[in-house]
């Protein structure tokens, strides 16, 4: 078993994609099904109420939430949003940032140094805060449809993330450009496009692939962080309960949103928080294994060894 990480990653990721596409068909209940609250009466000594949240049982494999929604059903319905937005946003980031980085890395422009100091100070304002400010007026109780909101949020996440990919590919390309074989090709009269296509891209393919998978993980983290602050993928329903604390509900039921809306179930009925968390970790784990597998596959053979 040479590269078991790669195989594990591929199998786990295909499993997730299958769930994302066909999940609703396997769901044990309808999306809006609510397990009713009721009472039982067997004898005068044996009676009582049963109310949601119901713990995991044969009827509800992963239990229900505080309103009686089946958690497994919600997870199966929400998977497609989390997964496809993660993959899509990461792909666009790599496509835009990567192609710009390679193009400008091949051109002769030198990087300005003033950028560095501004960038350093901007580190005090994390990326998710910028997205938070952009979305806070739009996502909660929005008049846009789920699809429109998902597209808008994805667009913002692409914009906020592609400069990082650009910087990384830029530095890699300008390093590669100094290699002997590139100089030789140039001396032989090859054009920019040929160098790009025949020499730079084959070298960067492995790196870009690893970067793509890692970028998926970063996007999922960003979605999760926004979810913690009640900005869910596909929109948030905000309700002021009379006397009760206000509730935030994810419309699309994406996994990060489920974690966000149930994050206070730490003290009791923990299964409500536990299963979405496990699902999310499994998602991260699959992509992590995939990236490790690809990384090890492409690991360079020119390795140095320590003396002590």
């Amino acid at each position: 078993m040479g590269n078991w990480r790669l195989w594990l990653g591929i199998i786990a990721c295909s499993f997730l994609i299958l769930i994302a596409i066909f999940g609703p068909f396997f769901a044990p209940y309808e999306k809006d099904y609510v397990e009713p609250t009721g009472y039982y009466y067997n004898s005068s000594d044996d009676f009582g109420f049963y109310t949601s949240p119901y713990p995991p049982s044969k009827k509800h494999l992963l239990g229900t939430d505080q309103w009686g929604y089946d958690i497994l059903t919600l997870l199966l319905y929400g998977a497609k949003y989390t997964l496809f937005v993660g993959i899509g946003v990461a792909f666009l980031r790599i496509l835009i940032g990567g192609s710009l980085g390679i193009w400008f890395g091949l051109s002769n422009k030198e990087k300005k140094k003033t950028k560095q100091s501004i960038f350093g100070l901007l580190g005090s304002i994390p990326a998710f805060l910028i997205v938070y400010f952009l979305l806070v007026g739009i996502t909660i109780n929005s008049s846009l449809s789920v699809m429109e909101l998902v597209l808008l949020q994805s667009f913002l996440m692409v914009i906020i993330g592609f400069p990082g990919v650009y910087a990384a590919t830029y530095s890699k390309t300008s390093e590669l450009r100094k290699e002997q074989f590139i100089i030789a090709t140039k001396a032989l009269g090859a054009g920019k496009l040929r160098i790009l296509w025949k020499h730079i891209l084959p070298h960067l393919r492995g790196t870009l692939l690893v970067m793509f998978v890692k970028e998926i993980i970063l996007v999922l983290t960003l979605i999760g962080q926004l979810g913690i602050f009640n900005l869910f993928l596909g929109g948030t329903i905000f309700r002021l309960g009379g006397g009760d604390p206000p509730v935030y509900i994810s419309i699309s039921r994406d996994w990060a949103g489920l974690i966000g809306q149930w994050r206070s179930f730490v003290y009791d009925s923990q299964w409500i928080l536990y299963f979405p968390l496990l699902a999310f970790i499994f998602l991260l784990f699959s992509f992590y294994m995939l990236s490790r597998g690809i990384e090890l596959k492409h690991k360079s053979t020119l390795q140095k060894f320590p003396h002590i």
Partner: peptide, 28 residues
């Protein structure tokens, strides 16, 4: 360079904080 970057960050903060007011959705 430091003055320039501080000015840049200040402008960025002023802009960022207005976003919840300035970007809204009216009639879809």
């Amino acid at each position: 360079r430091t003055t320039l970057s501080i000015a840049g960050v200040a402008a960025f903060i002023f802009l960022l904080a207005t976003i919840p007011f300035s970007i809204t959705i009216t009639e879809g």
